[in-house]
Design a protein around this nucleic acid. Structure first.
Lengths: 345, 345
DNA sequence: TTTTATTACGCAAACGTTAGAGTAAATTTT
DNA sequence: AAAATTTACTCTAACGTTTGCGTAATAAAA
């Protein structure tokens, strides 16, 4: 394997010192134009590029930020990354993406790796396993080490750092409200276990809407999905019980798409018999039939905001930096899984 | 912002030399157990972690590999990354993901960035813009600099490096063959412009199948999609022409899902009037109705294989390293957009 | 008691880079 | 002609780490 070209090698080539080469390549006035020209030509010919590691070590910064996400096959996370990447690029930062695969252990590993000088700051969304475990020492340790951290989407209240979250509760409220206004009275909720914070928040919004509009809640209509088992099977219960829902709010797009499929299997029509709203930033909703009305999360915006906050903290010399929690608005994207009812204001 | 703890600081704390600290932390026999114990305790308390930059610089390797993909919101690419990540983890490597966003310029930038000592090797799929431009100097430069490169999916023939590609032609053949065997005689192709290599390959497979089974080709049935314009609009032509297709092969999942939607709009039923097969590794296909029969690409496998080849080259001292092109088999995932015909062998 | 081993540390170089300080030689000024 | 300035370089330290080598002091062997 060929060796990379370095200042040292160029210096040797011309019988000058390393610093002469460095300065020549920087077009320093300290170096004669004659020497500068030949060194520059040589460097160009061999495509000399300064070694980033050396530069980073010297400058004590890497111009790279780390992003830890639980899953990359989720459209929402890729949207967030797109947002981060775009702004990072404009600001001259590189992005290093790591996956925790929802595993606590991998999250710790990733954090460890990133913390040791590799990045100037970290943006993270915590793994489900970590949320279940409630062990966040790896994050606090990071902060103790003075590495700026921004949490997004799945955040931890106890941790003192900048945060960016979608208005999950508000979005769920909006969705449920829409179903109520469309005339639904038996509104089901398809959600995750409670330890998944976003699931929890969305459930809160659902309950708030029912409450505010005096729609009685019904425990039978709340289905908590265990991702380890078949989603289809777990949804069967909903249509085999005493109360068949006329509206369904699902906390994500997969659940929403799946419940439509299962509803159809039971002979129900969407949106005529049952209206369905999902929660997402995904692609699937557009291609189901009927296409899914969803709560849009604006993942890109979240990513951008997260990076904005991170760079803000990185640039801040302030020892008493004040952390913020930024709420990204969600809104309803009406498609064809809900009826087009004329709403009176 | 707090400062990171270093060997130097620990050395100062105990009034010993830096090397003593380094050796103490490595439990060297050269250091008395008394000194070792107190230094180790101190380091543990302040969670000392060696600075990776310094280590990488010294060891002349980073244990990090870079991945450049055109788009992260594509399920196929995220699958590939999942495959890379998994194996990388097992082998103790980190993964740095960069997005070119299909832009030539960003690809050059990313490559530049990664090339300067940041990674030990690179896995890349080239941007559409680069394919159109046919300017691959940034890749050859990389190779000239001795940085191992593996290309996947969208590869460049002229470049001398390890490659991993899906059997696009074979998959397309399989899909078209299936349509023919199901009795279709007017088989449409929804494809990308020809400069997108995978689109080109899939078209080849389509033509090969038609040819082999003596099905006449029909230029009117080949639709080349311009991603800049509305896909729906471009597909209208297909159903407004003289020959209405009874089978459609689309080179990706979005085209396939969209063409089903448009077909329905024109009053055709899938799979009764028209059978549709897509090409992908995506999520959408499962949730369309009918669900889409597709050619599975095995993105994870591709990712794993790509990393395998890369590590192979990194570890090889061989100056005359022999590059390979690895073909990943594709196969048909039959769902409900095709008829269940009993095939006679 | 002298020689040899052992223990426990420090020194220095190396990875690649930059930038301020230092220094010969050449040139200009007085 | 002497002094001052400019030119064109080199030296050195620093970023954080590792490791072979050197070396005191102590301990063991002859």
């Amino acid at each position: 394997m060929k060796q990379k070209i370095t200042l040292k090698k160029i210096a040797k080539e011309f019988g000058v010192s390393i610093s002469t080469v460095s300065k020549a390549l920087k077009d320093s006035h300290e170096i004669s134009s004659e020497v500068k020209e030949k060194i520059q030509a040589f460097a160009k010919y061999y495509h000399y590029k300064p070694n980033s590691l050396a530069l980073n070590l010297r400058n004590q910064k890497t111009k790279t930020i780390g992003v830890i996400i639980p899953e990359i096959v989720h459209h929402f996370f890729t949207k967030v990354i797109t947002g981060i990447e775009k702004l990072a690029n404009e600001k001259g930062y590189n992005v290093m993406i790591c996956l925790s695969n929802e595993s606590y252990e991998k999250e710790v590993l990733n954090l460890d790796m990133l913390a040791n000088g590799v990045v100037d700051g970290i943006i993270a969304s915590v793994a489900k396993e970590t949320e279940a475990k409630e062990d966040y020492r790896h994050f606090t340790e990071l902060i103790d080490n003075g590495i700026p951290l921004v949490m997004f989407d799945r955040v931890v209240d106890e941790i003192e750092c900048n945060k960016v979250i979608a208005d999950d509760k508000g979005g769920a409220f909006l969705a449920t409200e829409q179903l109520i206004k469309n005339g639904c009275s038996n509104i089901a909720l398809i959600t995750t276990p409670d330890y998944v914070t976003v699931g929890h928040e969305r459930k809160e919004g659902y309950l708030k809407a029912l409450n505010e509009y005096n729609v009685p809640t019904n425990e039978d209509l709340v289905i908590t999905i265990d991702d380890q088992k078949s989603i289809d099977d777990q949804l069967n219960d909903l249509f085999e019980g005493n109360t068949i829902p006329d509206g369904i709010f699902a906390v994500n797009e997969i659940y929403a798409a799946t419940v439509m499929k299962v509803a159809r299997k039971f002979g129900h029509s969407v949106p005529d018999d049952i209206e369905v709203i999902g929660f997402t930033d995904g692609l699937i909703s557009e291609f189901t039939s009927p296409s899914l009305t969803t709560v849009a999360q604006h993942g890109r915006t979240m990513g951008q905001k997260a990076l904005e906050l991170l760079l803000d903290e990185i640039d801040s010399q302030d020892l008493q930096y004040h952390h913020k929690t930024h709420l990204i608005q969600t809104d309803l994207k009406v498609r064809n899984s809900t009826k087009k009812v004329q709403l009176q204001n």
